[in-house]
Design a protein around this nucleic acid. Structure first.
Lengths: 341, 341
DNA sequence: CTGAAAGCGCTTACAG
DNA sequence: CTGAAAGCGCTTACAG
């Protein structure tokens, strides 16, 4: 049902070598031979077998994406899903196909899986344990990490300027006039949550407005449900403390918190301004829409592919990773304290 | 850097054939040979080259997923992303890796891409034009369609019982006491939107409550923005007509509509109940949360893989596709007419 | 400009 | 129980 180069050669009356040269475009071929071969190829809808090609060229033109997720979702994650979208598009533009997999246990199984397939390179999304990194490293397959957390200086990383973004959030809320700001801080072992909090607090301190430690809610999770739970537990207290604004280190936490507030008759932003970080789709859709700091998800995916491709082609390897800019997205969930919206 | 079976054989003092037999597990080998070979493999962390294996076995153990999307998002789509998640998990459990790609132009390019890679099978998500289907068909690669639209009887399809689901929505709203219901009907050329509307209207008619044609808003899109736009255009008129409930053929349209309502001081559900279809994550998170008809996204992904695997293995091919049940998810956006919530 | 040969890393009969 | 040989579908020097 699938044809081989041998069949094309026979039908066109030339050798396999000639067909191969014509297909690959390198090497000479007479116009007549070329024409005959091309006609046969078109007639039979011949497609060269990529597996055979990979076998000899030692290049598969495939890349693998491993997303770490302890729980669902994987591809449909509001942030990683967007990065993945961009990776797919950028990869295909360069002629790569992309395998996507998840590593729920942060184990080596998934890496193995793709390494056997001989991918040309690997994109690791989110945090992965050092042993996984070491494992991949030993294989000699080019790889890099997107939005991850690692101290390993060897690892090429694509990240956001999270600290700067945290600062932008603080500056914005301060500019609006907020002086008593509550914070929901997601898992501090994550690079991004950690830096966002740091940038936020430092910027606030520079404004002479040191954040009250009792108004900072730390959490080991970063989900919508967690944001909601934290508010149900601390919401009343924070309001009693006179907080006029709430900043969360990601949109999901902010949205969960906002839902609780709305359901309990707290008007956002009139009584309390709420702000997140990431600019996931949901944030623009919510009512009120969520003010946030945007992360360049598409840029991360594109940069990851661009760098990985260079590593694969062994071009002047960019020893440096990439830091992408963040930006303030002003929406309906924030306003000056004590005003209508 | 990667070892070959030859190297293992030399180091273990046996032939390639013996190593191969030991790895694959079929064929005999003496305990001593087995032990020596296994030690060398462990030491060198040898992984058989899947490309070479695919070459001889004519099986890649890869499947391809093609998602049609005219615009972004692809993997991060609230519905297709979930299906994709389930596909990836189910596929890996059966030993397949999955390529994911998108076909923005509904053209043949993407199919080509994967067909060259010699995937063992193909999962087509969403609608794809007949010419793409015909093309794939000619290749002899097993394939099936998830949540798609086609009249082609050859195509194995995995879908929801959308008509039944539409009926469930109608029955529910009628049971609450609503008699004057507005509808937002997404693109009718899509099987699902079409059947959802049909099921809804027929069930309502059976209750002796025929829907008013002027209260049915047809749209060629199914996005959040479109739902919002439709409300901004027709919201006042519908309320003037005395509508007490609104049903949309998917959650995105419903949510967009609801946002406009909330922003314009219409209380949901007190003044107007709103209901969608799909049960995307966002629906549970919204404030108020959206009552909807759930679609078994995970089930679709799992069934797709299960059936495709059977096609690939040429087992008793299930000539029939699969229809998955829908279910009512009652949330905060609906209530009896004229009541508080 | 073109073809024969070797080889990519495996597996699978086939002899021994 | 084990090894030599052929072959999966290509590409790449190397002769001619």
């Amino acid at each position: 049902m699938s044809h081989t180069i041998k069949q094309i050669a026979d039908l066109a009356g030339v050798s396999k070598s000639t067909v191969s040269r014509i297909i690959s475009g390198n090497g000479y071929a007479s116009p007549e031979a070329r024409e005959r071969v091309e006609r046969v190829i078109a007639e039979l809808q011949y497609k060269p077998n990529a597996v055979a090609r990979a076998m000899v060229s030692q290049r598969t033109n495939n890349i693998g994406v491993i997303i770490y997720r302890q729980h669902h979702p994987i591809a449909s994650h509001p942030l990683y899903g967007k990065i993945l979208d961009a990776v797919i598009l950028a990869a295909e533009a360069l002629g790569y196909s992309v395998f996507v997999t998840t590593d729920q246990e942060m184990s080596l199984r998934r890496a193995d899986f793709l390494l056997e397939k001989r991918v040309d390179g690997l994109i690791l999304i989110s945090r992965l344990r050092q042993n996984v990194i070491d494992y991949v490293k030993r294989f000699g397959v080019p790889y890099l990490m997107v939005n991850g957390t690692t101290d390993d200086a060897d690892v090429l990383q694509i990240v956001s300027r999270d600290e700067e973004g945290g600062g932008q959030a603080a500056a914005y809320l301060h500019r609006l006039g907020h002086r008593n700001i509550a914070v929901i801080a997601g898992p501090q072992e994550h690079r991004s949550h950690n830096l966002r909090l740091k940038g936020f607090c430092e910027r606030l301190a520079r404004s002479g407005c040191r954040p009250d430690e009792s108004a900072v809610l730390y959490s080991s999770q970063s989900t919508f449900e967690e944001g909601r739970r934290l508010m149900s537990e601390h919401g009343e207290r924070l309001r009693a403390m006179g907080c006029t604004a709430l900043f969360a280190t990601n949109d999901m936490l902010a949205l969960g918190a906002m839902k609780w507030l709305l359901e309990h008759g707290v008007s956002v932003p009139r009584e309390l301004s709420v702000m997140g970080f990431d600019d996931i789709d949901l944030s623009a859709m919510y009512a009120p829409s969520l003010t946030t700091i945007s992360v360049d998800k598409a840029g991360m995916g594109r940069e990851a592919v661009r760098l990985l491709d260079r590593l694969i082609r062994q071009e002047a390897a960019p020893a440096e990773g990439v830091e992408l800019a963040t930006g303030l997205i002003e929406r309906g969930s924030t306003a000056p304290p004590g005003t209508g919206s």
